[in-house]
Amino acid sequence: MRLEVLKTYKIYIGGKFPRTESGRYYTPKIKNEGLGNICLSSRKDFRNAVVAARGAFGAWSGATAYNKSQVLYRIAEMLEGRKAQFIAELIQQGSSKSQAEKEVAVSVDRIIYYAGWCDKYTQIFSAVNPVASSHFNFTSPEPTGVVSIITPEDTSLIGLVSSIIPVIVSGNTCVVLASESKPLCAVTFAEVLNSSDVPGGVVNILTGNTKELLSHMASHMDVNAFLYARGIAKEQTEIQKNAVENLKRVVVRDFSDVYSSSHENPYYIEDFVEMKTTWHPIEVIGAAGSGY
């Protein structure tokens, strides 16, 4: 009989897979069976991840909508290709086989759903505004910046995908804290991202203890928004309090119905954009009619 090798799952920062700088790890257990050695990330890992996310923001937000769409679609393709591994991990983390298969299938479909929105959401949320002066006045969405994401605790893959993808559609970059008790798919998903044309730093994934990282994820001045996907009132309050420092946009979203189509929703993209209104001078609108 051979002794099984317990995989060490590393974190994902700036397109690389470092171990946590703290050197710490934990071993989450399901039914008394260790899942693997998981990095217990420190606030410094978070800080490094924010630096990576900020560095990646310019190029990702500047990429064409068409390109972003292709990249997202590629994630779905790669995920589909590694279905078997995700299903095995989900089963290892306590899912039944049919649940696991469903979770992976919905995740792939969801990524494809959002890939389609990349070049369409701006049309939906933009507007030409009527004004009383000789200006062409229009409003269009732009990505908010770097987003902290705390993913649902009770699912390993579908919650992760459903929280990350709509955030990066518009060109945001993010730092993600994965489920503490079910972290396996998060790290494997990082491997998928890494092999699917997503520029390093666009998505950074940490594993570890929420309590330890929460306040830093919420207070960091270089983070522009926060997506909180767990319904714990105490944690929400702490996030809101810390986010005040730089007026972070905080979105608390209910993930209890994560399989329902309500999570395929362009307004989830709109949650993390800023509306820019431009006043473009035009010639005086005279009797001849419109100045457009």
């Binding site: 924010v50 207070s219 001045m221 270089d222 420092e245 730089n246």
Partner: peptide, 9 residues
């Protein structure tokens, strides 16, 4: 302050 800073400020 204990808070990580941003170049923006």
């Amino acid at each position: 302050t204990g808070i990580y800073q941003s170049k923006d400020y």
